[in-house]
Design a binder for these strands. Structure first.
Length: 471
DNA sequence: TTTAGGG
DNA sequence: CCCTAAA
């Protein structure tokens, strides 16, 4: 009963995404008639929610046609060989960046949908619906991953639905008839291969759909609806982000799929997002190295580099002091990006644990051996690059003994700090600072460097010094 | 490729 | 956190 109700709410999204997919799957040779059997089996589902939702006739039609068409393509005896051939050809033409972009566009489109929904409830239902409608009965036997439960997300579902084009996506009549529960959606998610392919299939979606615009048959069948929807794809966010992507090139080690998978998680629906956040943000009694234990969800944790955008690291949970939040590798902050605030790139708060590790590392290797420290102390923290470590250290120095502040001032600042460091840690930082003078010739009290050197050498370091000289 | 320094 | 220059 619940399920039925849920299904109703999916209609819009299904309709939208499917139309795209439909485009893509549309082949002149294929006729609806040929898939009659499938159609019938599908009809049950389709008809059900259409009745309730009271949609326009065209929509209904195209929706049904969509399901029908998709099924036909994916059914073994259907035209899958034919279509895959086509897809292959297209896939070859697509380079990685395009793949990412498309991917992104898809996600964005999804998000739009989510946002369009009036009621949160509907949103959650939507997720399942997306899966339901598009997934074409992925009865795929093996893909239920027990580990990944309960945190399915709209974007993932939707995008992966386009996976339907994949050969490995097997659908048959039984599965289509069968009820599709929420778990079914989840089953899709964590397969790296799938995600990888997903990217490609997304490309197909865009490419093929545009390509099919020239196909009168397809056009007439779909009516105005699809063309209208089409425009949805490249949203502002998509454009912005793709622009960003351009300026910062992918580093060699960054696998597209890692990127896209991340991307998706950003679009969890509110209630599902919940799940993610709880893993990330809940404060747990400080285990010494929580990070160490928590990485396995992602195929290649350390490949997820800077490129992964994390939004809004700072949340209530984290505000007080260095929270002892455990950080899993893929935990990144999965807040739905509020509109327009993306200017600030992703930041990730340093936890007390991390700072401690950093200090340990420095005390062992000395400041400057950032890669070593990273390797040994932050091996599991994919998001902390050696540069990050250095930056943090720099900040720690500033925060602790302060380069130019007088003692009183420094302490005062300390007190006002949003996230005050524990005294012990602070003390260690100061100690280390004297042992490993990081900003090589930092000025002020500690005797080491500047002594014999004259002004010239000093002038090399930062504006602090310069200002000093000036005044 | 890593580090340093500036923004 | 990002970018760039230098090593």
């Amino acid at each position: 009963m619940n399920e039925v109700k849920e299904e109703e709410s999916f209609v819009p999204p299904i309709e939208d995404e499917t139309t795209e997919v439909e485009h893509l799957l549309e082949e002149p040779e294929n006729d609806y008639v040929s898939v009659d059997g499938v159609f019938c089996s599908n009809k049950e589902n389709t008809g059900k929610f259409l009745d309730v939702k009271d949609f326009h006739d065209e929509v209904e039609f195209s929706l049904r046609a969509t399901n029908c068409g998709l099924d036909s393509y994916i059914t073994p005896e259907g035209g899958d060989a034919l279509n895959f051939g086509v897809l292959d050809g297209i896939l070859d033409e697509v380079d990685d960046m395009e793949g990412l972009d498309s991917m992104d566009g898809l996600s964005v489109a999804c998000e739009d949908f989510l946002l369009d929904m009036d009621v949160a409830q509907e949103v959650s239902a939507l997720d399942i619906g997306l899966c339901n409608g598009l997934r074409l009965g992925n009865s795929s036997t093996d893909s239920h991953s027990p580990g990944y439960s309960g945190s399915s997300n709209g974007a993932v579902e939707m995008s992966e639905s386009s996976d339907a084009i994949n050969p490995e996506f097997n659908c048959n009549d039984d599965s289509c008839q069968g009820r599709i529960g929420p778990e079914d959606c989840n089953c899709l998610s964590r397969d790296s291969i799938k995600v990888d392919q997903l990217q490609n299939s997304s490309d197909c979606v865009s490419l093929l759909s545009s390509r099919n615009k020239n196909n009168p048959a397809a056009e007439s069948r779909l009516g105005a609806c699809p063309t209208q929807k089409r425009q949805r794809k490249p949203t502002r966010r998509y454009i912005e982000e793709s622009a960003n992507m351009d300026s910062s090139h992918l580093r060699p080690e960054q696998k597209p799929f890692a990127f896209s998978s991340k991307k998706h998680v950003n679009f969890r629906t509110p209630d599902q997002l919940h799940n993610v956040e709880s893993t990330e943000l809940t404060s747990v009694p400080v285990k010494d190295c929580p990070e160490e234990t928590s990485i396995k969800t992602l195929p290649t944790p350390h490949l997820l580099g800077r490129q992964l955008k994390k939004h809004e690291p700072l949340m209530e949970d984290d505000l007080g002091e260095y929270s002892s939040a455990s950080e899993s590798e893929d935990d990144f902050v999965g807040r739905k990006p509020k509109k327009g605030i993306d200017r600030r790139k992703h930041q990730r708060m340093w936890t007390l644990v991390e700072v401690t590790k950093l200090v340990d590392g420095i005390s062992e290797y000395g400041a400057g051996k950032w890669t070593d420290i990273k390797r040994l102390f932050f091996a599991t923290s994919a998001y902390r690059t050696p540069i990050d470590l250095r930056d943090k250290w720099r900040n720690l120095l500033r925060a602790s003994h302060a380069l130019k502040l007088h003692k009183g001032e420094a302490e005062k600042k300390e007190k006002n700090a949003v996230r005050p460091l524990p005294k012990s840690l602070l003390r260690r930082v100061r100690e280390l600072a004297t042992i490993h003078p990081y900003p090589r010739n930092y000025t002020s009290r500690s005797r080491p460097v500047p002594t014999a050197k004259k002004g010239a050498s000093i002038s090399f370091n930062g504006r602090n010094v310069r200002r000093r000289i000036d005044s």
